[in-house]
C-alpha cells in the first residue's frame, strides 16, 4: 500500500515538473516547485514507512521548513528585488 502511494506521489511529482517546465510565467514555475517540494516531503514520509525507518519523518519535517522558507524567499525576492527590509512598499533595495 505504501508502495502504491509512493508511486502515485512520483507520478504527481513528474506532473508538477511538467508545469515547472511549461511555465509560462515565473510564478507558475515557483508554484510548481513549491508543489513539487510538498510532494517530496510526503514521499519522504511514505518512504520512511516503506523502509520501516521512522527517522525519515525528521527529514520530512526539515524538508517542509526548507520548502517554505525557500518559496517565501523567492517570492519576496521577485517582489522587492531584495531579501532585507525594504524602506517603502515599492522601494527597490540594493543587494
Amino acid at each position: 500500500m505504501f508502495a502504491a502511494a509512493a508511486v502515485a506521489l512520483l507520478v504527481t511529482m513528474a506532473m508538477a515538473l511538467v508545469r515547472a517546465l511549461l511555465g509560462p510565467s515565473i510564478y507558475d514555475r515557483i508554484l510548481a516547485v513549491n508543489a513539487f517540494g510538498t510532494k517530496t516531503l510526503l514521499l519522504i514520509a511514505v518512504l520512511g514507512f516503506l523502509a520501516e525507518r521512522p527517522d525519515f519523518l525528521d527529514i520530512a519535517l526539515v524538508y517542509a521548513l526548507i520548502n517554505f522558507i525557500g518559496t517565501v524567499a523567492v517570492t519576496k525576492y521577485s517582489e522587492y528585488s531584495h531579501l532585507g527590509h525594504p524602506v517603502g512598499d515599492d522601494a527597490r533595495g540594493e543587494l
Binding site: S25, L31, T38, L61, A64, T71, V72, T75
Partner: peptide
C-alpha cells in the same frame, strides 16, 4: 507535518498571489 503544512500553505499561496 500536517500542522506545519496547514500554517505554511496559506502563507506561500498569499505571498505568491501578491507577488504575481
Amino acid at each position: 507535518i500536517v500542522a506545519f503544512l496547514a500554517f505554511t500553505s496559506p502563507t506561500t499561496s498569499h505571498a505568491l498571489a501578491r507577488a504575481a
